[in-house]
Design a protein around this nucleic acid. Structure first.
Lengths: 95, 95
DNA sequence: CATCTATTTGGCTATTTGGCAAAATAGATG
DNA sequence: CATCTATTTTGCCAAATAGCCAAATAGATG
């Protein structure tokens, strides 16, 4: 396997960074079960809806979630369910 | 499995956040091969040695690396080699 | 103890982040 | 087209981050 370049690490770090927030981990874990609209996520998270929307934007830019419109609602879903294996791996770290 | 609390997510996010930087991913990957002193890491990274030292502090606080002194040198090593499985998982994400 | 080397710490600046509130937007519906 | 609902965007502020340089520290060694 080739040595990774700075760019490789930057790309990888960008995805990891998107996950590096408690609220975003909560969102990702919720989406694991089912796709969910923003207002429902807001209720779970408890922050202002604009804040939740920004978190979703971060996740979307990282390619971790995607959205589907249905009437007035946007339903978000995991674009990449395997990220949760990654999160679970971290959760299981013995420190 | 119980629902995770905010604290669970905060703890998990703290570890992930420590990994969420290109230089720190580079460092972690280097340490995978062998334990390494700070000045050697500085050569690989190319930043000021104080910057590298601070990155190592971040990783140490997260429990991801540990150090061993040998004479003047501090040899850092992975405290938790499994984190790289995690990183590899992210690297392999299809986006 | 003086000094040397490797490393960490402190101080500074520029940039990014996370949060709320208010304004703007996108579709649905009257 | 007016209006309603769900969501995003913008503006703002406080706090955190990353980087460099200079100063401090920890051991080793003369």
């Amino acid at each position: 396997m080739k040595a990774k370049t700075k760019n490789d690490y930057a790309a990888q770090a960008a995805v990891i960074k998107a996950m590096a927030h408690p609220t975003r981990l909560l969102i990702l874990n919720s989406l694991k079960k089912k796709e969910t609209c923003v207002c429902e996520l807001r209720d779970m998270v408890g922050d202002d809806i604009s804040t939740v929307s920004k978190h979703l934007l971060v996740l979307k830019k990282a390619g971790l979630v995607a959205a589907r419109r249905e009437g007035n609602w946007l339903h978000y879903r995991l674009a990449c369910p395997c990220v949760l294996d990654f999160a679970a791996c971290v959760a299981g770290l013995k420190r």
